[in-house]
Design a binder for these strands. Structure first.
Lengths: 270, 270
DNA sequence: GAGTGGTCTAGACCACTGT
DNA sequence: CAGTGGTCTAGACCACTCC
């Protein structure tokens, strides 16, 4: 039997095809027909046409703004993150001279953007550890933690590249008062250098990767359609002493991010 | 000003809260009130109530089946995949005696299920390489490829644990005719043993990780709500000779999958 | 066939973005 | 203010599941 496609799906597919084909009026940046117009053209009731547009928005093809209109989105460039190389490189950076550290950032490596084209926004606070945090760090529930929220952006565009929530045990971070001062961000040389100022060397970083739909707030900040997917990256840094010294929860825009890991294998003896 | 929540959002939040609190009638497996009933109770029009239910479905809290009803979903167990350990272990398995290979599978490692509780479904075909495949393997467009589709399931439950599309150069795979025969699946000892029968040793595996919304077909096969997120894993196997010998595209249910990678760092000399 | 979700309509009114 | 998407209604009819 025919698979039975709803009317809104058919309309959405037709528009998607026009976009893919580059039909005039359906190129990136172009304004799509108003919902009311399509209703007047007999493409369906307002509910039906809206459903079609919503589907296209969820698929990342168009962006809808209330009061403004519906436009075809620019194809978004992929951001490829190779964490194995990145973490190794970042650790080495911490040992370089001040001059070098000041002119290099980790964010650049992902995006290909110049160091001075990236704005860092940081908000610091102190909070008691909830059950989850306490377990991660192996401390008692209620232990005071340093909570640092970051997001990075380019100057012309206020959409965030990622949303970062970073945690450390407050008493540990406080060994260097500069670490408690958000105006010191972006820190030249990154996390590894910060750690070195309080006598900590990071031995291993564990990444946990999950996905879910973006919340409305996340979608707005990251500039992605509401209801699209995000990648959740849980990054745990373990010191040479075997302690968890830092934990970051990173939200990445799913549609324009790819993570890469490489697993080398031991050769069979012949 | 008040953030202004739509009526459907309020209704969804209220039900979500009941589910979180374990209110009688809102426990896993319980049937939720019919849409028509809520309409009769004045919770809104059918469109409004349906929007609330749809939101809960997208969030993974309930499952809706046309003609049957809406139930609170069982919290789904997490599947944690540690590919570094997994790939290393799988390579070693290929060298073990037949007896051992026959009683171990890779799928078990992810799920904790017993070897004989997993059913493998395999479909093989031969297709010409499109541009993307040709580039990956470094062959000409149109080169004949072996395309193997797999999915695994437990006997009592027909939902797939993952959907796998695997590719090899057909002429290479054909060196061992058994590799072209889908009835030989599941192959005792996995991919590495298969490769060893045609004189190939895998030296390195590269994982690429992305995410997007599930298609309707994927959602149905994986038993996840329509419109929820999936993880896309692109797995490329490189031989000791430096050739790409196998490429798999794996679709994983986002809400019940976590990938883990660990990055060891060189110690600073002191 | 009874029951349940899914689609669709026609139209009213609200909320936000621009000028 | 005009213009555009977002929410909501009341009700009709369709498609699927289960008995």
């Amino acid at each position: 039997m025919a698979p039975k496609t709803p009317q809104w799906r058919g309309l959405a597919d037709q528009i998607a095809q026009d976009i893919a084909a580059g039909t005039p009026g359906y190129r990136p940046g172009d304004q799509l027909p108003q919902i009311r117009d399509l209703v007047a053209q007999g493409k369906g009731s307002k509910t039906t046409v809206l459903a079609a547009y919503k589907a296209l928005e969820a698929e990342g093809l168009v962006s809808m703004v209330r009061g403004h209109g519906t436009k075809v989105r620019q194809p978004t460039p992929h951001q490829i993150r190779r964490h194995q190389e990145r973490y190794v490189w970042e650790k080495k950076l911490a040992l370089r001279p001040d001059e070098v550290r000041r002119n290099n950032g980790v964010v650049d490596k992902d995006t290909g953007l110049k160091h001075d084209q990236i704005e860092t926004h940081a908000t610091f606070s102190a909070i008691p550890a909830d059950g989850g945090l306490a377990e991660r760090f192996g401390v008692d529930t209620g232990t005071l933690m340093l909570h640092r929220q970051y997001w990075h952006s380019t100057p012309e565009d206020s959409t965030a590249l990622s949303l970062i929530d970073s945690y450390m045990v407050h008493a540990v971070a406080a060994r260097n008062p500069d670490l408690l001062d958000s105006s010191k961000e972006p820190w030249p040389g990154g996390t590894h250098h910060q750690m070195s100022t309080i006598g900590i060397e990071i031995d291993r970083i564990d990444d946990g990767i999950r996905t879910r739909l973006a919340t409305q707030a996340e979608a707005r900040k990251l500039g992605i359609p509401a209801g699209s997917a995000v990648i959740l990256l849980d990054k745990t840094s373990v010191s040479t002493g075997g302690d968890v010294v830092e934990y970051s929860h990173v939200v990445l825009p799913g549609e324009r991010t790819e993570l890469r890991y490489s697993v080398p294998l031991e050769r069979w003896t012949r």
